[in-house]
Write a protein that binds this DNA or RNA. Structure first.
Lengths: 337, 337
DNA sequence: CTTCATTATGAAAGCGCTTTCAACAAACGT
DNA sequence: ACGTTTGTTGAAAGCGCTTTCATAATGAAG
């Protein structure tokens, strides 16, 4: 077994039809008479026929495969988006080919090249910033591409307004009377999502007559430990902030832990707001106030958009999904100190 | 652009060599003279040549693609394992084709069929339990397959001793004097990992002259909310347990939250132990005692094993990675009540 | 009863690459 | 100097499928 894999011609012979007919039975059943179709299907089933994807892809020019390149799979955010994409795609017979670049533009270029070479029918990317070479590759391929989280005004995109997310977080804290607000963000290099969130928060502060000086912003690796470390740095300042914004929820949760470890009470001694709306954020204590991002929807829509583009339907240039402030226990009015 | 994609024969013409030579320049550069190789490479670069994966796969029988089927991508565990796999594979030019089955054996069969059809060179699956049809498909294909987390004694596997993990958790609590121990597990249907962990814990209790009656075991969806709900049920019992084991860390963290919400102190009023060793578990408060599982290593090794099998090297039938109890603050000696 | 669609099927030409197999040249040993 | 390796390259036959294009058969229309 395994040796003599059943091929289309075997099914054709068994069913007493031509290879073309078997091919049609698979791809365009309506073209066949019901009897022929039934006969072919019976043969295929009996022989255990499985079409060869490579051959189909070569002959038809379509691989029924979508590529996705994310910073890392090891992140609740991207994992959820990919799961949603995968689930949506699977319903239409598409498979997901994934790659990660771990915040390296060069690795992203590599990944794009690899996926393009594999003949994916569409490509999902995260963010709008990338090496010019990557963009050139993408354009030259004229392949359906969907950007997620951030758009660049050129490629089709399914995004959120990251600046708005930052602003909502900041305005919430400002409204609670906070004046010194700190923020922990991911490394800004090759991460336009974090840059936009920071910018949005800063603009909101400025608009309120306040500011977000560099001294109150710390860049950290996108982990819970990074959040704790950032929190520790900010709280160690001579004039520590009374409220903290996490560029991702994980940072904010890290702040919760760090504050707890230092014997500070949240929200009494420190208010904390995150951005992302992880499931977990609703369950930590105190419950985390956060700007909710429809992560799963981004994945679903990216998949749908890609499939629509493949089918040559017109799609929105950029679909901006709503973000929403979810107030929980981790933030409260600044008590007169 | 996009219209006239550069093909191998174009490069051949440009470099003044035969197509065969260009093919060799890509796949077996040592066979060519340095000058020819350089010339071909220059042409390829100048023309922006990208080999067609489908054609290569069809002609060579290898797709340079590995398939992975997991219950869901939306889980810290599988996301990390896949990230590790992907990273390992990428170094050797392999790409990861992923699918998820969301705890449905039928969906897994579908996924296997889809991946087999795509001509993956190897396949990673989670757990040993599956529809007979799936196993038959796998065997008939005689494709390199690696099972993860649980082995079945037949397919090659990279596993951990789930029963041992359950036992370690239970023995730890028994050693601390706990007598009534409850456990929250994932739905046991189509989840041999959870069954093994439960079994291991139960055996440890029995070995200590105790027991783990059905009334102290609750099945929940594999989420933090599931952990909270399970904890609530167990604590609502007439004679509630003094210690809880989470079949996954997420459950244990849910227990922490639920206990906190009820005004119970962990570990003073309740000891909690998890299994998995998530990063997060070190940072929640109190720090979670857990049985650490080398999740990333599973992914790395699965990838390496698969590549070794593809290269016809001999590999271990089943590689069992060590699990280890990590004691933190969430568990303590039962105080005489 | 002829003509023109319409429908169902087959023949055959590839899709872009890999890989024997063969050819040839150069280097080797004796 | 001659048979033999060794090293490079090319010719050509596919890999298993899709897809025009052509053909045959059927029915509708004139």
């Amino acid at each position: 077994m395994g040796g003599g894999r059943v091929k289309l011609s075997d099914v054709a012979r068994d069913a007493g039809v031509s290879p073309a007919t078997v091919s049609r039975a698979i791809a365009q059943p309506d073209l066949l008479s019901p009897e022929t179709l039934a006969r072919v299907r019976a043969s295929a089933l009996r022989l255990g026929y499985l079409p060869d994807g490579a051959a189909r892809a070569l002959a038809s020019g379509r691989s029924m495969t979508i590529g996705a390149i994310v910073p890392t799979l090891d992140s609740a955010i991207f994992a959820r988006a990919l799961q949603a994409m995968q689930a949506t795609l699977a319903q239409s017979g598409y498979l997901l080919l994934v790659a990660s670049h771990e915040a390296s533009p060069a690795a992203e270029t590599q990944a794009v090249r690899a996926l393009l070479g594999r003949g994916v029918d569409g490509l999902m990317l995260v963010g709008a910033e990338r090496a010019p070479e990557t963009t050139a590759l993408l354009k030259a391929s004229s392949l359906p591409v969907v950007l997620t989280w951030c758009g660049d005004g050129h490629f089709t995109a399914v995004t959120i307004d990251n600046a708005l997310a930052g602003r909502l977080a900041a305005e919430h804290l400002i409204g609670l009377g906070h004046r010194r607000i700190g923020m922990i963000v991911g490394h800004l290099q090759f991460n336009d999502r974090q840059r936009a969130r920071l910018d949005g928060a800063r603009k909101a502060l400025v608009a309120a007559g306040l500011s977000l000086p560099e001294s109150l912003v710390v860049e950290q690796a996108l982990t819970l430990a990074g959040g704790r470390a950032g929190c520790a740095m900010l709280l160690g300042l001579d004039a520590p902030p009374t409220a903290l914004i996490g560029g991702i929820d994980l940072f904010a949760i890290g702040c919760l832990e760090e504050a707890h470890a230092r014997g500070m009470a949240v929200p009494d001694d420190l208010s904390v707001v995150g951005i992302d709306g992880l499931d977990m954020s609703a369950h930590v204590s105190p419950g985390l106030t956060t700007v909710h991002v429809p992560t799963g929807r981004i994945g679903n829509l990216a998949a749908q958009t890609l499939m629509a583009m493949i089918a040559h339907q017109t799609v929105d240039r950029e679909r901006v999904l709503p973000v929403e402030l979810v107030v929980r226990r981790s933030s409260q009015r600044l008590t007169g100190s």
